[in-house]
Amino acid sequence: MTVSRRKFVIGAATLAVGMASVAGTAFGQGWTPTRDVELVIPFGVGGGSDLMARVIGKVIVEEKLLPVPLVINNRPGGGGAAGIGYVSASRKADPHTIILVNGTTQITPILTPQAKTLTEVQPVANFMLDDFLLFVKGDSKYKTIQEFVEDVKSKPDKTFNFATGGTTDVMAITVFSKAIGKQINPVNFNSGGEALTNLLGGHVDGVIGNPLEFMGHLKSGAVRALGVFRDDRFEAFGDVPTMKESGINAENFQMWRGIALPKGVSEEVQTYWQGIMRKVAESATMKKYIADNAAAESFIVGKDFEAFLANQEKLYRDLLGKPAAQ
């Protein structure tokens, strides 16, 4: 269906600006978009992934990366399932549609059979990785991860309660429980903010989560980070040891956020969008956004991204105890 979409033009001047930059000169040969591009966000306005998509949109518009206007369309619902479903059903092989994808859109179909999986879209590039840290309250008696783990090991399974802000936090707890051989009792909340609130209120013993909501409290000493689930130390929090260097053999656990196209688009189109996303990733705005969110830049593109996703899928399925159906 060939259609023109005039949805949600970012900024009033976009159209004029878009038309002014001569179509596709920046990328030379191959495919270039000929009509409005739709950026689908499979989440409601205001969340972390929505903000990142809007930053991508802002960079594309401000740096005039596209010869056509970019329109943003939020399709929230079902942990990303509604948005993926929308793209796979009504935007098949449409090179003028891009969609934000993240770990949640990969996890939802594992838990919810009717949700469309990421195999319904064509991954283009990943922008960033969110890290997971283990936090305790600032006045906790545990100063190091070793002290904490020893105490956990000395008590029965599930003695310790950890607040979670979503499925990914639960999976991080599973990673940690596996590494120390004792189960932690997850108490599920709706967001990282709620998990933080309950940690500060002393209603739970700890949290494993993304640093975003915790940064201010970490600096002020209201919460303490005992360890991070990655290979090397964090630039932002240089004094937080990694799990591995603390002698805890926990798998690396990070969440990704990237962009995909509808399934069935040509190689040319993919190459074009990979080029655009590379420019977005290299922009100062995007770099600042990632730094402000205490996340790690991780530009993975094309086949590498697909391989990365296949790995993540296996990891998630293992953690959730739902191995792929053979």
């Binding site: 929230p76 619902g77 079902g78 942990g79 399932a81 509604a82 479903g85 996890i107 939802t108 838990l111 919810t112 009717q114 949700a115 469309k116 499925t167 599920n188």
Partner: peptide
């Protein structure tokens, strides 16, 4: 609490 869907009548748009 668990991430599984209830009473959605098979409709993706009812997941939320």
């Amino acid at each position: 609490q668990t991430g599984i869907s209830r009473f959605d009548f098979g409709a993706v748009w009812l997941l939320d």
